[in-house]
């Protein structure tokens, strides 16, 4: 199973066909364990009480919002540098899933913040950065939807994704700076290393479970996208073929004009 095998969309379809049942199984099992540990086994936090249970889903969502963007950035690099046929499929499939997890991170953060801070929203550095990330996701999805040709859209989105990825640390840094300027003390701190294992282990299991869920959904969405492109090429061939037949039957001397730029430009990617 070398990476080169994955380059071919047909091979990718065959491989994921075999892989997906296992992935679904692993997702279900790990999520059942993670949620059981989070809801029934893990103790209450001495500061936050039972609301710490929200953290067991909030933190995995935050992790996935970054993970999905990283997947998109790597895929965009593949699109721009190697023109890999699968990479823009991967980038396109990851965008709505990543946006959904980012949105969930915001919602659960807000629901966690209301009992902790007393308001639905604070302009806390971390929440604000996630909000900016969410807007970036929506911009990327908007760009995918406005450019009709998938190959061309893939290239434009790849540039945007990579520029955004370079900017994420800068945005994070400036939001932190801005936040410390205006809000001297943060209200709740969840410091990683000082977390007791009784909280850390359910959190890690949940993070793994949601990552597996993301991978499952991402693979299925990639498969749909490959099929969608296949359908698109078939339809174009059909239309071009129909046009060709019409031309041939109506005018015999049309051979010179038969090579219109439209028919020449039919997408090359047509694995069958």
């Amino acid at each position: 199973m070398a990476i080169i095998d994955l380059a071919n969309p047909t091979r990718f379809m065959r491989l994921t066909d075999r892989l997906l049942p296992w992935l679904v199984g692993a997702t279900v099992v790990s999520m059942a364990i993670g949620l059981y540990l989070a809801l029934y086994v893990s103790p209450e936090d001495y500061q936050q009480g039972a609301t710490v249970k929200i953290m067991y889903i909030h933190v995995p969502f935050a992790w996935l919002s970054m993970f999905a963007y990283t997947v998109m950035a790597i895929a965009s690099f593949g699109t721009l540098v190697w023109k890999h046929p699968l990479s823009d499929v991967s980038a396109k499939a990851a965008a709505p899933i990543g946006a959904a997890f980012t949105f969930l991170c915001l919602v659960t953060g807000s629901l966690w913040g209301k009992p902790m801070w007393g308001t639905w929203w604070v302009w806390d550095a971390r929440l604000t950065s996630v909000l900016v990330l969410f807007i970036m996701y929506l911009g990327i999805i908007a760009l995918w939807r406005t450019i009709e040709d998938p190959i061309r859209a893939g290239k434009a989105v790849a540039v945007l994704t990579l520029v955004g990825y370079i900017n994420i640390p800068i945005i994070k840094f400036s939001v932190n700076w801005w936040n410390t300027l205006h809000q001297p003390a943060s209200v709740v701190r969840m410091d990683g290393p000082s977390m007791p294992p009784s909280i850390l282990i359910p959190l890690l299991v949940n993070a793994l479970a949601f990552t597996l869920l993301f991978m499952t959904l991402h693979f299925i969405a990639m498969r749909s996208e490959i099929l969608r492109r296949r359908i698109r090429t078939l339809r174009q061939h059909e239309a071009a073929g129909a046009a060709g037949v019409a031309r041939a039957t109506t005018s015999v001397q049309a051979t010179a004009s038969a090579h219109s730029p439209k028919t020449n430009k039919a997408p090359v990617e047509a694995p069958s």
């Binding site: 900016v132 807007i135 970036m136 929506l138 911009g139 908007a142 760009l143 406005t146 450019i147 061309r152 434009a156 540039v159 945007l160 520029v163 955004g164 900017n167 800068i170 945005i171 840094f173 400036s174 939001v175």
Partner: peptide, 22 residues
Amino acid sequence: LTVSLRRGGLLLAILVLPLTIP
């Protein structure tokens, strides 16, 4: 990015504004 789009002005603002925050 929006050079080939008929009405790219609004999309341009959406794409660019997050990057101008710093």
